[in-house]
Design a binder for these strands. Sequence first.
DNA 1: CAACTGTTTTTAATTTTTAATATACATCGT
DNA 2: ACGATGTATATTAAAAATTAAAAACAGTTG
Lengths: 314, 314
Amino acid sequence: MARSNDRYKSAYNQMLEILETMEPGHELPSETNLASELGVSRTIVRSVLAHLQKVRIISWRGRRKRLLRRPLGSERFPESEVESAAERLEDRFLEWVLRTDVAPDTRLNVSLLSRQFGTSPHMLQEFLVRFSRFGIVEHLTTGGWVLRGFTAQYAIELSEFREMIELASVKKLVALDVGHPIWQELDDLARDHQLLLEEVETRYRDFSALDDRLHSTINSVQDNRFTREFQSLISMIFHYHYQWNKRLEKQRNTVAIREHLAYIEALLSRDLERARAASLAHLATARQTLLASTGTTVPIETSQLPDRPAVPAE
Amino acid sequence: MARSNDRYKSAYNQMLEILETMEPGHELPSETNLASELGVSRTIVRSVLAHLQKVRIISWRGRRKRLLRRPLGSERFPESEVESAAERLEDRFLEWVLRTDVAPDTRLNVSLLSRQFGTSPHMLQEFLVRFSRFGIVEHLTTGGWVLRGFTAQYAIELSEFREMIELASVKKLVALDVGHPIWQELDDLARDHQLLLEEVETRYRDFSALDDRLHSTINSVQDNRFTREFQSLISMIFHYHYQWNKRLEKQRNTVAIREHLAYIEALLSRDLERARAASLAHLATARQTLLASTGTTVPIETSQLPDRPAVPAE
DNA sequence: CAACTGTTTTTAATTTTTAATATACATCGT
DNA sequence: ACGATGTATATTAAAAATTAAAAACAGTTG
């Protein structure tokens, strides 16, 4: 098997969703229109149409495409097949790195790992190349890879860099004109935080997304691709961190929401010193949370996970 | 042909250099020692020894390895074969991006480009994945790559981010204890700049390396892997920039050396405001130099370079 | 018996090949 | 004539295959 057909499956499912909203007997748009609507090439559209015809959901001859019946939910490809192999790999790899107690500076065995993660060596290799920008894995000149690990040192360096960037954003933000759209966005964020706080008992899990939104909004004022790139790393780390560190989650998130509200209010006051103080206070909490999670990660489900290879030289 | 034997050739050349310093009749160290000295595995050492024996440079039987005669310079592998394919590719690609007038947002044709750069599509693909962290090329979800290009906007964002990082370094640096090794390093740098300035007429090309050394030294006080990573991007961009932008080179470098000297002196004064001012002055010049090079790049040797494909949709 | 060598096994890097997808072009229907 | 379709071709993505190099192991020698 060469290239996977995730795109086809994903397009097929999307097409079913479109058909569900249509009346039987209705004509379908042209192949070109469907292609641009689904964001794929006509080749895929035609494969999808061919299959739809085969299972008698549509009739198709030349430019005549008519919906025969509404598709069933069970006719969709299961989500697990649609999710691309790359996404699955990222999930599994990050879970492995952040959740288990793999020793720092462990040499990675690509062929072994790829077997255990259920992918080809090639895909793991590509993933490691992409992932190495985050500084958690590193390629050795002598060949092979090392896992530097999500260590306390890593958390500190990440947090320091983050604080430097976000303080620069804060400085720029408070100096912005009152007409700038950022003020509306901050108002909206304050409202959404308020709403979440009122229902925190049930919705506390929604905090992760809101956290990402606030920091992305603040850093957006820099309008800088390197800032955006780093913010996306932060988002990823915190996303997985929140996902797996469920202890004290509700309490911790309640504290964080209040900090966010104070932070937003300080920004809205456009008083630089006040905003800096609120920013630093929140970032310090985030740093502590991250740090606490590094030293104390508990090994879970050690079975089925890769063995710990010998510690390398380099 | 699968894996290339660059490592072998490089090790062979290194070995010849070692043998040139030895007297004929002398005994060679053990395979293990040679391996660690050359930074390769015993397998390569043994291949090298086997070849040396075959061309009668050494005698070899068991653990008895004796130098028979001094090797000739002509017996080395030519440098062009030793340089790894990856390095060659980076060189050629960056030359293409920074030196020619490829339109921004040009769609890249991997198979065509790889042919023109003399590598396999796979290697180009890997290179693009690694290189995409710098934001000059981007992978599309619909498949394929776009060259975002080294545009004026790129130069601005790069410079802004750089200034933010370096000012943070300056702030941290001037607060360091007098016993910290950084002060000695700055003294050395000042001396080397002075020496270069005296011989600037002939040695002005050495400035590029010194520039890199100064900024790396300053940013080293952050002791942060993200700072280091970004500094290496800066180094790369400026390295290629200096290499190909020869106009006014001598004059420009003379100015920059004087700025560096003022910068170093300001740092040594440990006066934050003075250091900040000197830093900003130099970084502003660097930004201007970079910016000037984006708008006005002259197309050279358009033949043999890839055609400009159609502008993509995305 | 400790360091070294000879040999075998494992792992990584790279090319070649294959399937999926995109694109271009000719053709057809209205 | 214009937009849509049918068909052919080109390109990308990923696996399989191949070779280089590293590591592990066993035996040897001083």
